[in-house]
Simulated scan of single mutants.
Amino acid sequence: MKYHNFRQSSKLFGALCGGLLISLPAIPQALAQESTVKVNPSPSIFSEPPYNRSQAPGSPESGVTPPRPVPPAEGQSSPVPPRPVPGDRTQQPSSPAVSNDQQPLVEPRQTPSATIALTNGMVNIRLVNNTAAKITFQVIGDTAPRSLEGKSDVTLQALKAPVTVTFERQDSGQLIVTPQASSEPGSLEVTFKEATNAAQGRSAMRIERNGSVFLN
């Protein structure tokens, strides 16, 4: 009787152990499926809008590492920035140098032949012809050409400075012109003599506002 009960107990224990062995392989599969569902319940979450931008690939929250730059293939050199062209610099344009022969010539200031004190900017001129030839004279802008006989004189009154007087011998000879301040205020006396060479000849006289008298 005892032996019969022991056999039945052994069969029952064997049946229980066999059932456990059959169900054990299914437990890890069920656990794996459950963990997969919890990790990524929606595999297309990044391809179908809307989705959370904070979990986009490459963001710090998503945990996805952005792709690294691809190095150039063997035999290909990496791009090199262009070198600056020599002399290609931005600078202010400089003015061209002026050579000595291009500089304007400054004429030395002529020394006045005489100086008089003007009266209210006016001057009286006495022309004295000490030659035997007739002289033609003109006050530029004031009078027409006039004649002065040899061994004679004429006075031009109240000429406003600056004033220019021209003169010429009718026989085409040269004249030596000598201006000199008169004893009368605001008066100038001009004497004409015959010149022996052309270098001594003068043909014009100018009186400036300051009373300076120049011959040409």
Score class of each variant (00 low, 15 high):
residue 144 A to K: 12
residue 63 G to F: 03
residue 64 V to W: 10
residue 197 N to K: 07
residue 160 K to E: 11
residue 19 G to F: 07
residue 127 L to F: 00
residue 55 Q to W: 14
residue 57 P to G: 06
residue 159 L to W: 03
residue 73 A to V: 14
residue 143 T to H: 05
residue 120 N to L: 08
residue 76 Q to V: 14
residue 103 Q to W: 08
residue 200 Q to Y: 06
residue 202 R to C: 04
residue 141 G to S: 04
residue 40 N to D: 11
residue 117 A to F: 11
residue 68 R to L: 14
residue 201 G to N: 03
residue 127 L to D: 00
residue 182 S to M: 03
residue 75 G to R: 03
residue 206 R to F: 04
residue 79 P to D: 00
residue 181 A to R: 05
residue 29 Q to L: 14
residue 13 F to E: 12
residue 100 N to R: 12
residue 66 P to G: 05
residue 97 A to R: 11
residue 130 N to P: 01
residue 19 G to D: 02
residue 48 E to G: 03
residue 47 S to L: 12
residue 75 G to L: 05
residue 11 K to D: 12
residue 206 R to W: 02
residue 89 R to V: 15
residue 195 A to D: 03
residue 122 M to I: 11
residue 13 F to K: 11
residue 187 S to Y: 05
residue 150 G to H: 00
residue 131 T to N: 05
residue 197 N to C: 04
residue 114 A to Y: 01
residue 155 T to G: 02
residue 109 R to W: 02
residue 170 Q to G: 06
residue 130 N to T: 09
residue 139 V to G: 01
residue 16 L to M: 13
residue 127 L to A: 00
residue 212 S to P: 01
residue 6 F to H: 15
residue 171 D to H: 00
residue 72 P to R: 05
residue 57 P to E: 07
residue 26 A to Q: 09
residue 22 I to M: 13
residue 85 V to Y: 06
residue 188 L to M: 01
residue 18 G to T: 10
residue 37 V to K: 14
residue 135 I to P: 00
residue 185 P to K: 06
residue 212 S to C: 08
residue 162 P to F: 04
residue 19 G to M: 11
residue 46 F to H: 12
residue 204 A to Q: 10
residue 182 S to F: 01
residue 169 R to N: 06
residue 152 S to E: 08
residue 96 P to N: 04
residue 21 L to D: 02
residue 11 K to G: 10
residue 153 D to C: 02
residue 152 S to V: 04
residue 42 S to C: 09
residue 209 R to K: 15
residue 168 E to M: 09
residue 98 V to Y: 03
residue 90 T to G: 11
residue 44 S to R: 11
residue 104 P to G: 04
residue 178 T to E: 10
residue 101 D to E: 13
residue 49 P to H: 02
residue 46 F to V: 09
